[in-house]
Design a protein around this nucleic acid. Structure first.
Lengths: 253, 253
DNA sequence: GCGGCATGGTGTATTTAGAACACAATAGTA
DNA sequence: TACTATTGTGTTCTAAATACACCATGCCGC
């Protein structure tokens, strides 16, 4: 919660710099220890959780805005970002619109505005991301997908829509480059797919299919040290990966 | 082109009723005589073609806005509408932003604003649509997809993106209910698919696959009158069609 | 140091879906 | 009545997806 003084400053600043009525909210997926993670923020002074979001500068492309916001939240630059839906119900931000209505008249109150939010989902390297809270929040942290807190506004719907889109995307786009470390083993990559899809896949068939895409390079040296048989290490073949991204993998008709 | 007086009236009205910075542009597909058609508008006093579009009322859900705009342009109510992308480059509407800049200072000039546009595509029944021009245009008409005029702003990109999305959608959603008349023959439906995809399909395999979806009902009576063998008439089984829409058709993993 | 066991690599049958293709039925036409 | 264009239906062939089996490796406990 803002004090009145803080609120006035924030609103003045926002009105001057940001596009009215538009916000961006991002579902940031990470992957660690066999768990799909989502980045969430916790508000100051409230038991309220949000997806990371922000506003669009008056002269900024929306992709840039989404990138900038995530850079601030994660420290990461080269992020896989995908716009997936605009949420445009006039009542979707009602709680925010009413929040400060006693404190500041609507004309000056940035939050009293209706906001459409553009949903992006991001796939990021969990190990290199450094979650950083924003101005409104006290905590920015990863949560397991199957242990999410209740989210404010329509953010739970945004998360669900993002996940549905990601699962669909899996069918015709390669995914993993942004979620896996540089080198990884086949079982590790399989675990990522299983986690996103929420179901087990056959080890051998997975391997054949993913290798069939031609987007993986196998290293000479297997990973040593761990117990059991030493698995091969793989990395993505960037050139083929990129062309698979643009051209798609398979497809119906 | 507006006169100054018209412009002032339009801007006053727009500022009062519409959400700033947001517009909606729709790619309306129809199907007739084996041709995929797209609805376009031609401006008054200019050789300039646009996709149908409009603005969002201050308290209106964006889906409603898209529906309202298309109702005005086509007279149709129950339209299949699908949001597919937001176009948010700050320069995308530059020509409009500069158009009236001599006539009215930016603060009062609605067109001087930057606009994000939410892209929708629509599938409509060609025979029942009655194209009607809007306030700015002199003509609203169907054009063959392969005979499109150059479109203003980024509307050609919007059209291309819509078409790509539609083709992708074809793989996991049934399409046709909104584009075909109540009853139709199998070759007619196949022609629709071929036209959207831009390639020939095998008659027999198409039939098997589409019937396999279980979304068609075959009428008792074949179509009479035409030359050659009388084809069966089909109609969509709405119940199954709807569930196929929500649940998807097939899918990879 | 040797067998147990967990893990990872590779191969092979079986089933299913997709592509290619052939033939029969119908209705108008020469 | 033969011919032709069109539609309906079935069959074969091939590729992909699925299911399952076996071998290799490296640590562990004894």
């Amino acid at each position: 919660m803002f004090t009145k003084q803080e609120l006035i400053e924030f609103c003045d600043n926002a009105r001057e710099n940001y596009l009215a009525h538009i916000s961006i909210d991002s579902v940031v997926f990470g992957f660690h220890e066999g768990q799909l993670k989502v980045l969430v923020l916790k508000m100051k002074d409230e038991e309220a959780w949000y997806l990371p979001g922000g506003f669009v500068l008056k002269n900024e492309p929306i992709e840039k805005a989404a990138t900038r916001i995530l850079k601030e939240r994660t420290g990461l630059d080269e992020i896989f970002l995908q716009q997936f839906h605009v949420f445009g119900d006039p009542e979707r931000s009602r709680p925010h619109r009413d929040m400060y209505k006693e404190m500041l008249p609507a004309a000056e109150n940035w939050f009293a505005n209706r906001f459409l939010t553009i949903g992006y989902y991001a796939l990021v390297d969990f190990m290199n991301a450094v979650p950083a809270p924003d101005q409104h929040s006290i905590l920015c942290a990863w949560r397991d997908l199957d242990d999410m807190p209740a989210l404010e506004l329509d953010h739970s719907i945004i998360l669900k829509t993002a996940l549905d889109t990601l699962r669909l995307q899996l069918n015709y786009q390669p995914i993993g480059y942004n979620l896996m470390p540089k080198e990884f083993t086949m079982p590790e990559l399989q675990k990522l797919y299983e986690t996103i899809l929420g179901k087990k896949l056959d080890r051998r068939n997975f391997q054949r299919r993913i290798l069939g895409f031609g987007i993986l390079k196998r290293s000479e040296q297997p990973r040593k040290g761990g117990a059991h048989k030493a698995p091969y290490l793989y990395s993505f073949d960037l050139k083929n990966y990129q062309s698979a991204l643009t051209e798609g993998l398979q497809g119906g008709w």
